[in-house]
Every structure is written in structure tokens, then in C-alpha cells.
């Protein structure tokens, strides 16, 4: 469905006028630093990591919201990093993204019906009546029914969960094939999270979608993702089936990340050592393996050589020298 090859995204660091004048060297935030992965058709691929891992940038690159520095993203047989103009506009129908905060993603002065229909208008699809009809269908589909009752409401008249549904309706009305969802349940109360996740699953089946699900919350990711990739400082550390990530995490970072998640069970064993320190700056990532300064199992090879992402078990990729040979 979508294949990412050696994708790189560097953001130049804002510097003073003088520094820019007198030094040639530029600093870059290496947000995404040479990553490759594939998402199969109909799959929900989870992208997990801490803030600063580059997961959101990968998502934005995949829908052409930001241009890539280098690398390829093959979607339906063509490299979308090079597409321009009208073709790009048509492509954007097939690729959609939803953002974390449903409140700030909606214009407070626009009724939700208009907010959704706007996507059709921008793409010049159908007449006014057809647009209205399609919007109402979309509202019904995400469970805001009866649609006519919701069409003229404003975002502030909806609950957080309902707003998230509006976001989905707006993303899905253009019949995309591939949707990036950036933390869709992070701002939603626990008591309705599962409902939103189920809605996403249902929509996926109905509309034959493929998802890239970006999250920092590994506990929830299990309930929706087929496969999960773990990112750290712009690199993939581990990619495996969801089950394998939870039951047989191999990379010490993944293990640390899992053990840090608070368990809602007072009798649960205190987890083993939590990694020390914080994620370093992506401007000058540590040499060799980027995790080595915090890794409990680092050895002499780790600071010297950057580990490659290798297939170590069936469908299980790890970038760690512990599994190199």
C-alpha cells in the first residue's frame, strides 16, 4: 500500500543573522533520519515513541503536509514526494490526516456540517445538495445521528468524543485510501476511548482503509494496531506484530518504554529498571546507537557503530547490536 524508503527530514535550526553570515555550517534537527518501512493494504500500523522521536513528522511526510528532505514514499505505485500541482491536489483526496486536538482542529465559528462539507467544496465535488447529502451520510456513519440534528451545531455544543467523530467524518468524506491519525484518543476521556477506537475499526472495514496510527500511548495502541513500530530520535528501533511487541519486546528501549507504563493493578510487580535521563536533542544525536547513553545493556560496540534495522525473527525487525549477529 505505502512503502517508505530511506526517508529523511531535516529541519534547519533558526540561527542569528550574524551566525548565518559568518558560518557555512548549518545545524539541523534530524527529525526523521533515514527510515524505511511498509504498510500493507488494510493494515493499521502503529507508530509509537516519546515526544521528539519524529513519529509525527513521519505522519506528516506520508500525506505530503511537509516535503521530505530526501527518500521516497511509494503510494499506489508512484513516488508521492515528487508530485506537484493538480496531481497533488487529487492525491490529497486519497491521503488524509487527523490531528490530536479535535477542539483546535475545528473552526469555532463554523457549523460542523459546513466544516465537513468544506472538504468537498475545496475539491469541487458535487452540487450543493449532493454535498449536503454526503455530509449527512458521513455524520451518520461516525455515529452522529440523526445527522440533521447535528449538521447545524457548532463545535462548542459537542462533547470531546463527538468532536473527534466530526474530525473523522471530515477526513473520510473524500474517500481516502490511506489515513494518518495522530493521537486520535489522547484528548478523549478514558471512558469513551474504546468507543472511538472501535469506530475507527468499523470505518476501516466499511471504507477499506489503511491507517498509520501515531501514538505515545502503548497501552492503548495494542487495541487497534496490527503492527507497531517504535521510534527514537528519528530512527526505527523495532518493528513487529503488536503481539510480539507486547509479549516479546527485544530492543532495550522498547522494554524500558513498556516497563514505564503505569499498570492499573496495585498488586503488579514493580517494573524493572526504568531508563534514566531524558530523550536528548535531535540536533546532535549521540553517536553510534542513539540510545546507548541511557541503555542498561550498552556495551563497547554501541557508541561506535549505528545498528541497522535487521530481521531477527519472523516479521520482527530490531536495530540493536545485541541482536546483530
Amino acid at each position: 500500500m505505502i512503502e517508505v524508503k530511506n526517508l529523511v527530514k531535516y529541519f534547519p535550526v533558526q540561527k542569528g543573522f550574524m551566525d548565518a553570515l559568518f558560518t557555512r555550517e548549518k545545524d539541523f534537527v534530524k527529525a526523521v533520519d533515514d527510515v524505511s518501512f511498509k504498510i500493507e493494504k488494510g493494515e493499521i500500523f502503529g507508530l509509537a515513541g516519546e515526544s521528539g522521536s519524529g513519529k509525527t513528522t513521519v505522519g506528516r511526510l506520508c500525506v505530503r503536509l511537509t516535503p521530505a528532505t530526501s527518500g521516497e514514499i511509494i503510494f499506489e505505485g508512484q513516488d508521492i514526494t515528487k508530485i506537484k500541482g493538480k496531481q497533488l491536489r487529487l492525491l490529497k483526496r486519497r491521503l488524509q490526516i487527523t490531528f490530536q486536538d479535535p477542539t483546535s482542529s475545528l473552526n469555532p465559528r463554523m457549523t460542523i456540517g459546513n466544516a465537513i462539507a468544506d472538504a468537498l467544496r475545496l475539491q469541487n465535488i458535487g452540487t450543493r445538495t449532493e454535498q449536503r447529502k454526503q455530509t449527512e451520510d458521513a455524520l451518520e456513519r461516525v455515529g452522529l445521528s440523526p445527522a440533521s440534528a447535528f449538521y447545524d451545531r457548532y463545535p462548542h455544543q459537542l462533547s470531546g468524543g463527538q468532536r473527534q467523530r466530526v474530525i473523522f467524518a471530515r477526513a473520510f468524506i473524500l474517500r481516502p485510501a490511506f489515513v494518518v491519525t495522530d493521537e486520535p484518543v489522547a484528548m478523549v476521556d478514558v471512558s469513551i476511548r474504546a468507543q472511538i477506537l472501535n469506530l475507527m475499526r468499523d470505518l476501516q472495514k466499511e471504507l477499506d482503509l489503511t491507517y498509520l496510527y501515531i501514538t505515545h500511548d502503548l497501552a492503548t495502541a495494542r487495541h487497534i494496531c496490527d503492527r507497531i513500530g517504535i521510534m527514537y530520535l528519528g530512527k526505527f528501533f523495532e518493528i513487529a506484530d503488536s503481539r510480539a511487541i507486547y509479549e516479546n519486546a527485544l530492543h532495550p528501549y522498547t522494554v524500558g518504554l513498556m516497563s514505564a507504563i503505569p499498570v492499573p493493578d496495585p498488586k503488579a510487580e514493580k517494573s524493572e529498571a526504568i531508563p534514566t535521563g531524558e530523550i536528548p536533542s535531535p540536533i546532535n544525536p549521540p553517536p553510534g546507537c542513539r540510545f546507548h547513553p541511557r541503555c542498561p545493556r550498552a556495551f563497547e560496540r554501541c557508541p561506535k557503530e549505528e545498528p541497522e534495522l535487521l530481521l531477527v525473527e519472523k516479521n520482527h525487525w530490531v536495530a540493536c547490536h545485541l541482536y546483530s549477529d
Binding site: K15, G16, F17, M18, D19, L21
Partner: peptide, 14 residues
């Protein structure tokens, strides 16, 4: 960026 280089660049931009 230090204060000094900020001032210099600001003066140059003026």
C-alpha cells in the same frame, strides 16, 4: 545566540 551577536545583527539590519 549571544546578546552581543544579536545586537550586531540587529544594527546591521537597521
Amino acid at each position: 545566540m549571544s546578546l552581543k551577536s544579536y545586537v550586531t545583527s540587529r544594527v546591521l539590519l537597521t
